[in-house]
Design a protein around this nucleic acid. Structure first.
Lengths: 107, 107
DNA sequence: CGTGTAAGGAATTCTGACACG
DNA sequence: CGTGTAAGGAATTCTGACACG
């Protein structure tokens, strides 16, 4: 839960490089951020910084847009998937909690 | 020989981000390039673009410099290691060539 | 709704040089 | 040798707005 993330999720890519990597225009990238589909970090001066996983996400988004899906629908789908994941995590934690209760743990 | 490279060796990081990631000054980073220790790519406009492996390399370099090693020596060491690797590849290819000769291959 | 564009300004990066040592 | 810095310019990025549809 710490190392695989180091490169793929590190926000280090400028919008100019994103443009080349995704083939999208800066306008499109900024618009998808405005619609809350992507969440770049910001430098001290205000420039956007993206990760490699943002590159993948952006290409998925671009495909859906091409298929006529609206940004609002894409966002709803993302929220739904996120919710599913959270529930999965909660289930896991409950199971782990039962295991701990059964076999005891002390710090 | 294609996928593991995709993130780690992709040159996408600006010098400003490198500065934060490595803790080095822009002056130091540019100087190490001048001494041929690192090889950033350039954008169309001339800005340097680094990879995550450059981040690691740069931190190794910084450690050596702190230990009093000179850039020239670091470079010699890099060249030596590179040469060793090349020889290893050549040996591998020769072995593979013999295998192919023994068992035959046709395209 | 999604995207292009011109506008003006601010942040980022570049190079070559002087300085210290 | 390795690094800081001020200098001037060019490339990069930012936002808000108008346009089309």
């Amino acid at each position: 839960m710490s190392d695989p993330f180091s490169y793929k999720n590190k926000k280090v890519i400028s919008i100019g490089v994103m443009k080349e990597l995704t083939g999208l225009s800066e306008r499109q990238i900024r618009y998808y951020e405005e619609r809350k589909l992507i969440f770049p970090e910001r430098s001290a001066g205000g420039s956007r910084k993206f990760s490699f996983s943002d590159v993948e996400l952006l290409m998925d988004i671009a495909n859906k847009i091409e298929d006529g899906v609206q940004t609002y629908e894409i966002r709803q789908e993302m929220i739904r998937k996120q919710k599913e994941q959270n529930e999965q995590v909660v289930r896991q934690k409950m199971i782990q909690g039962q295991i701990n209760a059964q076999f005891g743990i002390r710090k």
